[in-house]
Design a protein around this nucleic acid. Structure first.
Lengths: 139, 139
DNA sequence: AAACAATATTGTAATCATTACAAATGTGCA
DNA sequence: TGCACATTTGTAATGATTACAATATTGTTT
C-alpha cells in the first residue's frame, strides 16, 4: 500500500504536505518529534510551515493513522506504525525503540477494563538502551 | 510507615515542604499534577513556592520515591505509589485511575529487554472512564 | 475558463507548563 | 555566635505547542 492509499484509507484527503509527512513517518521508524519531521522536510519543501506539521500530525492521530507517544516529558513522539507493539525509551540518547507487544494477547482484545472503555494500549519501558549501555561500560 | 520515615528511607532529608508534598501524595491517590499539588497546599502553606513543588517532585522521582506519569501530553502527573501497577487515563475528564499490573509476572523481573537495561515499566490505557461513559450514554 | 465556496497552508503571536537563576532563608556544626 | 551548606523562594526565561487570521489551493458550477 502506498502513502496516498494509506491516507485515503484513514479518511485523510491527500495533499502535498500530508503525503510528505506520512511518507516520512512510514520510511523513518524513528518515532520522530514534530520538530524532527519539520527539520527533515523543510529543505525539500522550503515553504513548509511548522504549524502544518503540527496540524497534520494531529490529524493523523485523530484519524488513527499514527500514534502519539507521550513517553518523554520533553516532547511528543509520533509513530506511523499503528500495529500493536511496545516501546523502549532511552533516557540517555532520547531515542525510542520498537519492541514486540509485551502484554497478554487476551488483553489486546479487551474493550473494557474495570468498566472503562479502552481505546488505546500503551506499554513502554524506560532505561538505558543497548548502545548507550555499551558505551558507558567502556568509560 | 509515616511520611518522614518514607522520605528518609529514600535518602531524602525531610523538610516542612517535602513532608507536606509527600504527605499529599500519600493521602491523595489522584495522580496530581505539580500545579494541583501546589494549589492544594498553598492555602495551608502560604509561603510555598511553585518552584519548590517542581523541585521537590523531581527530587522524589530521582530518588524513586514517586513515579512520573507522562500519560497526558498536556502535563505530567505524579504518583506516590511506586509499586508495580498500571494506569487508565480518561481523555474526557483527564483523571488517572489505578489498575492492577496488566503485564506478565515474568516481565516485571526482567532487567533487560533486547539488550536494553530496563529501569521503569509503564503500562497504561487511554479511553473514556466508567463514569464519563455512563454520563455520555444518558445524553 | 471565470467565479465561487470549501478546505488547506502559512506566519506570527500567544499560551502555558516547566526550568534557570540568583537572592533569601533555614539548618547543623565548629 | 558564626560560618558553610542545603533548601526555599520569586522572578524571569525557555521552549513546545496552539490560536488565529491572512493567504493559497482545490473542486465545482456556470
Amino acid at each position: 500500500m502506498n502513502t496516498v492509499e494509506r491516507l485515503v484509507e484513514y479518511g485523510i484527503k491527500p495533499s502535498v504536505q500530508r503525503i510528505a509527512i506520512m511518507e516520512y513517518l512510514m520510511t523513518h521508524r524513528t518515532h520522530p518529534t514534530a520538530d524532527e519531521v519539520y527539520m527533515a522536510l523543510c529543505d525539500s519543501m522550503p515553504t513548509l510551515s511548522k504549524t502544518t506539521v503540527y496540524n497534520t500530525l494531529k490529524l493523523f492521530v485523530d484519524q488513527q493513522a499514527a500514534l502519539m507517544l507521550t513517553i518523554n516529558d520533553k516532547n511528543v513522539h509520533f509513530d506511523g506504525d499503528t500495529s500493536l507493539h511496545s516501546h523502549f525509551f532511552c533516557r540517555k540518547c532520547g531515542r525510542v525503540f520498537d519492541l514486540p507487544f509485551s502484554g497478554k494477547k487476551r488483553e489486546a482484545r479487551e474493550l473494557q477494563i474495570e468498566g472503562h472503555a479502552v481505546e488505546e494500549i500503551h506499554h513502554y519501558y524506560k532505561g538505558i538502551c543497548k548502545e548507550c549501555s555499551e558505551k558507558e561500560s567502556l568509560v
